[in-house]
Lab assay of single mutants.
Amino acid sequence: TTEYTFTDDEEARRAIEELKKRGLTFRYEKHGTTWRVRVD
């Protein structure tokens, strides 16, 4: 499991789109302004 942290909404959304394109399994949660994206 790899975890990424983003504080920029645009950056987080781009990363999420990219992961979807690659067909990877991931989860994300947003805490205030911080996004945590975990890739299995």
Score class of each variant (00 low, 15 high):
22 R>P: 01
3 E>P: 02
29 E>D: 07
22 R>M: 12
32 G>V: 02
25 T>D: 06
34 T>Q: 08
30 K>M: 06
33 T>D: 14
22 R>D: 04
28 Y>E: 03
29 E>Q: 08
24 L>E: 04
33 T>M: 09
20 K>C: 14
4 Y>S: 02
4 Y>E: 02
12 A>S: 02
28 Y>R: 02
37 V>P: 02
6 F>C: 08
36 R>S: 07
34 T>Y: 11
23 G>F: 03
5 T>W: 14
19 L>G: 01
16 I>A: 02
31 H>L: 13
23 G>E: 03
33 T>L: 09
7 T>C: 13
15 A>D: 00
28 Y>W: 12
29 E>P: 00
37 V>L: 08
36 R>G: 02
7 T>V: 07
3 E>M: 12
37 V>S: 00
32 G>N: 04
39 V>M: 04
12 A>E: 00
28 Y>S: 05
35 W>A: 02
35 W>C: 08
25 T>S: 13
26 F>V: 15
36 R>P: 00
13 R>G: 05
5 T>N: 05
38 R>D: 04
17 E>W: 11
28 Y>P: 01
19 L>E: 00
39 V>G: 00
21 K>I: 08
16 I>M: 13
20 K>L: 12
12 A>N: 01
12 A>D: 01
29 E>S: 12
11 E>N: 06
35 W>G: 01
25 T>R: 13
21 K>A: 12
33 T>H: 10
10 E>H: 09
1 T>W: 15
39 V>F: 05
12 A>K: 02
26 F>D: 01
31 H>G: 03
27 R>V: 14
21 K>R: 13
16 I>T: 02
35 W>K: 01
25 T>Y: 11
8 D>H: 05
17 E>A: 13
20 K>A: 08
8 D>Y: 03
6 F>T: 02
31 H>D: 13
5 T>H: 07
4 Y>P: 01
26 F>M: 04
25 T>Q: 10
39 V>E: 02
40 D>I: 15
1 T>K: 08
18 E>W: 15
18 E>I: 12
2 T>N: 06
3 E>Q: 06
35 W>H: 06
1 T>G: 10
1 T>P: 12
27 R>I: 13
16 I>S: 01
36 R>T: 14
38 R>G: 03
21 K>F: 07
15 A>W: 15
3 E>V: 14
23 G>T: 02
36 R>M: 11
